[in-house]
């Protein structure tokens, strides 16, 4: 069973509507919404998956 560290956020793929729901819930403040695009700090992210549930359109996948 892979540990959390081995998982990664695949993408905020084509489904992303740049709404920022994931930004507000991220417990580590590592997701950001710059002018239009969602991004995240890979070094800070613990792959906790909270953002996956907060996303209304299922744009975030953790593999």
């Amino acid at each position: 069973m892979p540990g959390k560290r081995d998982r990664h956020i695949d993408s905020f793929g084509e489904t992303c509507i740049s709404c920022g729901a994931c930004v507000g819930i991220c417990p580590l403040n590592c997701i950001y919404l710059d002018e239009w695009r969602i991004g995240f700090d890979e070094d800070v992210c613990t792959r906790c998956g909270i953002c996956v549930r907060a996303c209304p359109v299922g744009a975030i996948t953790i593999a």
């Binding site: 907060a54 996303c55 209304p56 299922g58 975030i60 996948t61």
Partner: peptide
């Protein structure tokens, strides 16, 4: 409520 969301894209 996010705690009641069980799978991805469920809100939609």
């Amino acid at each position: 409520q996010v705690s009641q969301v069980k799978s991805a894209a469920e809100v939609k």
